[in-house]
């Protein structure tokens, strides 16, 4: 018998899976216990569906041969989520770290879980999972609503058509990619205003800037932006000169991956 055996619970190191479950539960309780997060998600969902109806009605009124670009039947389904889901969800991604830095709660968080990569991974899993669930549900719902309205004009698509399921899945993945990018930026920048500005720049403004660049640069640089890559994976009509859908999907994975890797390195090095 050793002295240590008096307090076996204190000396036994819990299994990695147990610790992972604990830190996931930690971040999940924190996410779900702020009412504003639910309000934001519900408001985003309602706005996205509502605007999808408006877009689909407009698209349904357009003659078939003119139904191109954002009013093309497939893209019209996802047009609303670009602002009404992705923007609010990205703000929540930013706030996951910046609100803790602003209040000082981050020090309590790191005192509870000193392994900072673990905190980042748990936040990414919980937020990314929630954004993926919300994104996919909304993508399918918006697709079905939009196609129901478009079918009146014989423009409606069905999920069985080639390329359509992939486009819907990819559209549903976009909020997840953006929330994780925003999460990383929040951890790196720490101030809410700065991180939201950076997130909007990365998610929207960079692609917007590329649209006005002269010819070769517009696509050469643009194809690596979230906006152009998003178009490639969910339009059903990938443009030539940009990356093919599979490579564009990698672009959409690379942005959050890089943001999170830099965030992890910064969190691990910096004083809390």
């Amino acid at each position: 018998m050793t002295v240590a055996s008096i307090r076996p619970a204190r000396t036994r190191v819990p299994a990695l899976a147990t610790r992972a479950r604990d830190v996931l539960a930690f971040e999940w309780v924190k996410l779900r216990s702020v009412r504003a997060n639910w309000v934001t998600a519900l408001a985003a969902a309602a706005a996205t569906l509502g605007v999808t109806v408006i877009v689909a009605r407009t698209a349904a009124a357009v003659p078939a041969h003119q139904a191109t670009g954002s009013l093309a039947p497939l893209l019209a389904s996802f047009l609303a989520s670009g602002e009404y889901t992705i923007l609010p969800v990205s703000v929540l991604g930013v706030l996951a770290f910046t609100s803790e830095y602003a209040s000082g709660l981050i020090r309590t968080t790191f005192a509870a879980v000193p392994h900072r990569w673990a905190v980042l991974a748990a936040k990414a899993a919980v937020l990314g999972g929630a954004a993926l669930a919300l994104g996919e549900v909304l993508a399918f719902a918006c697709f079905l609503v939009a196609q129901a309205l478009l079918s009146g004009s014989h423009l409606g698509l069905s999920l069985g058509q080639p390329g359509v399921p992939g486009a819907v899945l990819a559209a549903g993945f976009l909020p997840c990619a953006c929330v994780l990018t925003a999460l990383g930026l929040g951890a790196i920048i720490r101030s809410t205003a700065g991180a939201i500005t950076a997130a909007v720049a990365v998610i929207y403004a960079v692609a917007g800037l590329c649209l006005v660049l002269p010819a070769p640069w517009k696509t050469d640089i643009g194809r690596f932006t979230i906006g152009f890559a998003a178009y490639q994976v969910m339009s059903g009509h990938p443009q030539r000169g940009l990356l093919p859908p599979a490579a564009s999907m990698l672009v959409l994975i690379a942005w959050p991956a890089v943001a999170l890797l830099v965030a992890g390195a910064v969190l691990a090095r910096r004083d809390a």
């Binding site: 924190k30 216990s33 702020v34 209040s103």
Partner: peptide, 15 residues
């Protein structure tokens, strides 16, 4: 250093 939007119980529960 707490987040005002959370209840006391939820704050403690998360920890």
């Amino acid at each position: 250093a707490v987040q005002g939007a959370r209840t006391a119980r939820d704050h403690l529960l998360s920890l």
